Amino acid sequence: MFDHLVAITTSNVLEDGHMTDISIIGTGNMGSAIAGIAAKGGARVQIVARDLAKAEELAAQVGGTAATFGDALTGAVVVLAVPHAALADIVATYGAQLDGKVVADVTNPVDFATFDGLTVPADTSAAAQLQESVPGARVVKAFNTNFAATLATGEVGGVPSTVVIAGDDEAAKALLTEVVSAGGVVVADAGSLKRARELEALGFLQMVLAVREQIAWTGGFAVRR
């Protein structure tokens, strides 16, 4: 289950021009792509997974270090590039350790039993529920409208890939934007965390189109400026 569990942590740029430590929990496609962006932007990456061998393999690819799930998260930003069902275990494992951190939720709460809707009520979102679970964290929705391949290549059908974010904390969004932009990927700010509901619906629709073979998993929605 946790092969797709990812968290990224970082903070401001140090005097040597590097970001502080970035911790990635998991070795899935999204985690790998986001790790590549972070490393490209100069961040020092830590890969954390239940399977230490997989963590070490990905860490070697991005010039980072490896650790086991449950180890301390050392940075200021935590990116949860995980299946929605994994959020509960992250909250249970890290809980108050997320206080004060920018927590970027990458999940799409899709009902995979029917593949016909989201598992959260219409008046909320996975990101909003996460914020309720870790009230001391600064939750931002991000990356969920991107397929991993478009993050890795930096383009969607010839248009630069754009990471759309939403959150109530302006400083949190600015810090995440700094990390992503440093890695060469465009960021668009959709506003408050209320917009996470629309982002999750868009992410689900994109997945439906890919499953129905209307678009490729290397394609998807693009934001043209």
Rank of each mutant, 00 (worst) to 15 (best):
H4R: 14
L5G: 12
A7C: 12
T9R: 06
S11D: 13
V13T: 15
E15Y: 00
D16Q: 01
D16G: 01
D16S: 05
G17E: 08
M19I: 11
T20N: 12
D21M: 11
I22S: 11
S23K: 03
I24T: 05
G26Q: 04
T27P: 01
G28P: 04
G28I: 02
M30L: 14
G31R: 00
S32V: 09
A33H: 03
A33M: 02
I34W: 00
A35W: 02
A43Q: 12
V45W: 01
I47S: 02
V48R: 11
A49W: 00
L52W: 06
A53F: 06
A53S: 14
K54L: 12
A55N: 09
A55T: 08
A55S: 13
L58I: 03
A60W: 03
A66G: 08
A67V: 07
F69Q: 01
T74W: 05
V77A: 08
V78D: 10
V79F: 08
P83L: 12
A86I: 14
I90A: 05
V91I: 06
A92L: 08
A92D: 14
G95Y: 03
G95K: 08
G95S: 13
A96N: 12
A96W: 04
D99H: 07
G100K: 01
K101T: 09
V102T: 10
A104W: 00
D105V: 14
T107L: 00
P109V: 08
F112K: 09
A113R: 09
F115P: 03
D116A: 15
G117C: 12
G117Q: 04
V120T: 14
V120G: 02
A126F: 01
A126H: 04
A126K: 01
A126D: 10
A127G: 09
A128F: 00
L130R: 07
Q131T: 01
E132V: 12
S133C: 06
V134A: 05
R138M: 01
V140G: 06
V140H: 04
A142Q: 07
A142I: 10
A142M: 05
A142Y: 02
F143G: 01
T145G: 03
T145C: 10
F147N: 13
A148K: 00
A148W: 11
A149G: 11
T150L: 00
L151C: 07
A152L: 03
A152N: 00
A152E: 04
T153W: 02
G154W: 00
V156Q: 03
G158K: 04
V159Q: 10
V159R: 03
P160W: 04
S161K: 03
T162C: 11
A166K: 05
G167H: 02
G167C: 03
K173W: 07
K173R: 07
L175A: 08
T177S: 13
T177R: 09
E178M: 10
V179W: 10
V179C: 02
S181K: 10
G183A: 05
V186E: 15
D189R: 07
D189L: 03
A190M: 13
G191I: 12
S192P: 01
L193G: 09
R195K: 15
A196F: 08
A196I: 06
E198Q: 15
G203L: 07
G203A: 06
Q206T: 12
R212I: 02
Q214L: 15
Q214D: 15
I215T: 13
I215N: 08
T218R: 05
T218C: 04
G219C: 05
V223K: 11
R225G: 14
